[in-house]
Design a binder for these strands. Structure first.
Lengths: 122, 122
DNA sequence: CTTAAATACATAAGAAATTTATGTATTTTT
DNA sequence: AAAAATACATAAATTTCTTATGTATTTAAG
C-alpha cells in the first residue's frame, strides 16, 4: 500500500524558515536532527527537510542573531540546541503571521470557492 | 493611510507556476501583462509578479508543451496569448491540487489550532 | 557479534527560481 | 509634452534548495 508521497521539490521553497521559526517558538529549543524528524512525523513524511538545507539555514539564523545555541554532550556525541533570541521571537511571530496571511491570499486564487464566506470571515 | 504591503520576496518562491496554471485554466487564455495585472488586483497588490520571473517561465512552459501561444496585433503592438494544451490542463489540475494539499500540511504546522476539527473535516 | 540503520553534525558543488537591472516600443493619461 | 501604463524581452546576480560527500557514535537487527 502506497500513500503520502513527498511533495515536488519546487513547492517547498520559501517554507523552511517559517517552519523552523514556528517549531522553535513552540518547543522552546530544538536540535537540528530533531527538527527534521519532527517535521517528517508532523507531515506524515510529506516534507523531509534535507540536511543540506537545514544546517546552513540554522547557521545563518545564528549569524543574524535570530537564534543562539546550547551544546550538550550525549555520550560522545554533540547535540546543538537552537533557541530563539528575543529579537528572534519577534521575527518568528511576524514571519508566521505573514505566511498565514500569504496562504489566505494564495488560496483565494487557487480555490476561489473556498473564499466565499457568509458571516464567519476573519 | 498605508495598507497592503507586498509580501517579502522569499515567501512567493514556488508559487508562480501554480498561480499561472490556475489563471490559464480559469480564463482560457491570457497574455503576460494581463497575468501580472490580474494577480496584482486579485491580491490587492500583495503579490506583484515581476517580468523577469514571468516571461522566462511562460517561455519554459511553452517549450515543455504545457502551453501554446496565439499572437494578436493590437494596433502596432504585439500581444501574445497563452493557452493550456490538453497535457497542460492535466498538469495544471495536478499542480493546483498538490499545492492546496501542501498548504493544508503547512498550516497544520504553523497554525495547529486551526487543524482541530470536530466533524467538519474535508 | 557484526552489519545495517539511525542518530548527529557539517560542507561544497550544482541546479532552479527569482530579483534586479536594462532594453525597446506603443498607447493612454495628465 | 511629458509621464505613466501597456507589452514584450533578456541577462547578470542572488537566494534557496538538492545532491553528494564526509565524519563519527549509538542502537537495532540478523
Amino acid at each position: 500500500m502506497y500513500f503520502c508521497p513527498m511533495y515536488s521539490k519546487e513547492i517547498i521553497k520559501g517554507t523552511l524558515k517559517p517552519i523552523i521559526l514556528k517549531l522553535l517558538e513552540q518547543e522552546g529549543r530544538m536540535y537540528g536532527y530533531e527538527i527534521t524528524s519532527k517535521v517528517k512525523v508532523l507531515t506524515q513524511g510529506k516534507i523531509q527537510i534535507t540536511e543540506g538545507a537545514l544546517y546552513p539555514l540554522l547557521h545563518k539564523l545564528e549569524a543574524e542573531g535570530i537564534v543562539i545555541t546550547e551544546q550538550e554532550n550525549i555520550g560522545k556525541r554533540i547535540r546543538k540546541y537552537y533557541l530563539l533570541t528575543p529579537e528572534g521571537k519577534n521575527l518568528a511571530t511576524a514571519a508566521i503571521d505573514e505566511f498565514l496571511d500569504f496562504m489566505i491570499t494564495i488560496k483565494s486564487i487557487l480555490d476561489p470557492t473556498a473564499n466565499i464566506s457568509y458571516g464567519n470571515a476573519k
